[in-house]
Design a protein around this nucleic acid. Structure first.
Lengths: 340, 340
DNA sequence: CTGAAAGCGCTTACAG
DNA sequence: CTGAAAGCGCTTACAG
């Protein structure tokens, strides 16, 4: 169907081997031959098949990305950065979109394995037996951009510290009754860590934990919205002046519920979140947040990944596998928190 | 490196042919043989190589998607829907993210061609000579989710009518001085059509066009923000009471600039947009918009695409190629426009 | 510097 | 129902 290497060879009056050499910029190719080949390629409008090349070379230049929710602005911005850098290195992305549905992760890992991707990026922290066993078994390099809680290279902020910092920030502003919109406690250390950080900060400042101020959910906007409503409904018995949400999206959901109830941020409630992605600058008031340094995380993730995919090209002084890379975060003050 | 079909064959004591038959659920396989093979597959943890299979079958089950900006909530929601439906049909997505940079389109089309994708989705309307010539030349099925303005199956709303309806809505609410945050006029019929619709509505209602109320840009939030600032600065000579933005993101940018200037939507300015994606429900006030029916567009795009990829499986009564499919839009009233 | 030949891991007529 | 063999479109020792 497509024109192939032998057609080019014939047109140029050389061997397929030579065409291949020109295509791959091998050394030891005479200028004359190269010119003939390039001309034939041009003429026949030849596009080499990466499929055949991949089979032969046992390398696809494909990266599989497991992403929790592509419609999350934060995650989309991460994906965008990854895509750009991978393209720069000559790799392309096979994306999944598991919509926070852990069951779909295995389906995709399977697909990635079948497609013989050169590497996998796991941007979703929820684990189960099956996934863990796959990860242990496969020889495809995998890097996680999440606290997966077992032996696998991981790049993430220090989630305990981040939650601690966010909570402490509110406390220092005079808040003592702080609600938390927490992540999932089930299978993710990320969710647990952030909760731990919150509790640790409260304890450190002598604040008794009121468990009915902690609401568990996923990281979605709608969830934040409705969890906030629950908190507001319980307000008489369990009052609070600030909300710590574990994602921008949840925080915005909460802010919207506050708004829709005719209340105001930060006058009635201060709100802080973790992510500090695009959404935190879009909403009004702008959202004060623990900022995950996307660029640096992305760079580190890809450095680790490519070091494994092409060690000869990207070797470095990085620590051994299994290492947890904690990227420092910072708290960016905007407009959603006020001093009490 | 990986275990392969012949390893399974050996372990099961059958031929590779038989293993292949079991893998592909071919008929005429005895239960006994199948059981042996399945067992061997299980035991060796065999995952077939889609690369080899693709080469042989001349089919990759890959769809290439050209997306303008993955960090746009609207586009991310479209991509998410496409991903889901493709996965259901056994196809996977190779994504690009051209960031509104038309030059990158060709790079990706090239990659898609090399990867021998089975189909291409073009979700970006800007064209140039090179892209057009590629599209004409390639035999890979392509469907555009944008008004590309030449012979290629297209699925989109009626952009002229959509802009007309948005403008008319404002006019009927008593607005006569309506600013427009327009798209790009350069290489996209979408941008031009939306402008035409705006002008047509104004003319129909006897409103003189004030060209300094029309600002051109891309579809991004920041652009909307700064174009709005320009409009506000010119307000003394060119007053207006309403803004029609050609994307949710631009509208939100405009709303933010209005807010940051200490003004209010809809009290000081009414705002309407085209898209009606997730963002339109996230902002406060909620954004009144021409709603692009994402689900229906996605479904139509994929129906057209798969009909071309697998005509035997997905044949239908669809009109011939080159056909422009206009999906009806609707105007969803929310909170960002007021009666004058 | 150049080319003939083998082989990457599958599928598929073809023959039995 | 089952298998031997050819071939998908490339690359890469090997030989010259």
């Amino acid at each position: 169907m497509d024109t192939q290497i032998k057609d080019v060879a014939r047109a140029a009056g050389v061997s397929a081997t030579s065409v291949s050499r020109v295509l791959n910029n091998s050394p030891h190719v005479s200028e004359k031959l190269e010119k003939k080949v390039r001309q034939a390629i041009e003429q026949l409008n030849y596009t080499p098949s990466m499929i055949a090349k991949s089979l032969k070379r046992n390398k696809t230049n494909l990266i599989g990305v497991i992403i929790a929710d592509i419609t999350s602005g934060y995650q989309a911005s991460v994906l965008s950065g990854i895509e750009e850098e991978c393209a720069r290195r000559g790799y392309h992305l096979l994306v999944s979109n598991i919509k926070e549905n852990t069951k779909k992760v295995m389906d995709y890992l399977q697909v990635f394995q079948e497609m013989r991707v050169d590497g996998i990026l796991l941007m979703h922290g929820k684990m189960n037996e099956e996934i863990q066993s796959f990860i242990k078994r496969t020889h495809i390099p995998i890097i996680a951009q999440a606290d997966v809680g077992f032996d696998l290279p991981v790049v993430t902020i220090d989630n305990i510290q981040a939650a601690y910092d966010a909570t402490e920030y509110l406390i220092r502003k005079g808040h003592r009754r702080i609600a938390m919109l927490a992540g999932d406690m089930q299978d993710t250390s990320e969710g647990r860590h952030r909760c731990q950080g919150y509790i640790a900060a409260c304890k450190h400042y002598g604040i008794t934990i009121d468990h009915s101020l902690i609401r568990y959910g996923d990281y979605k906007l709608d969830t934040g919205y409705w969890l906030m409503e629950e908190l507001l409904q319980n307000r008489e018995n369990h009052s609070f002046t600030a909300v710590f949400a574990v994602s921008d999206d949840m925080a915005v959901g909460a802010m919207n519920r506050i708004h829709d109830r005719g209340l105001r941020v930060p006058d009635d409630f201060s709100v802080i979140s973790i992510d500090g992605g695009p959404m935190s600058d879009i909403v009004r008031p702008r959202l004060t947040a623990i900022h995950q340094p996307v660029d640096r995380i992305t760079r580190t993730v890809l450095d680790l990944l490519f070091e494994r995919i092409e060690p000869e090209k990207y070797r470095s002084e990085l620590p051994p596998s299994g290492w947890v890379n904690r990227i420092p975060h910072d708290l960016i003050e905007k407009e959603s928190c006020k001093d009490l």
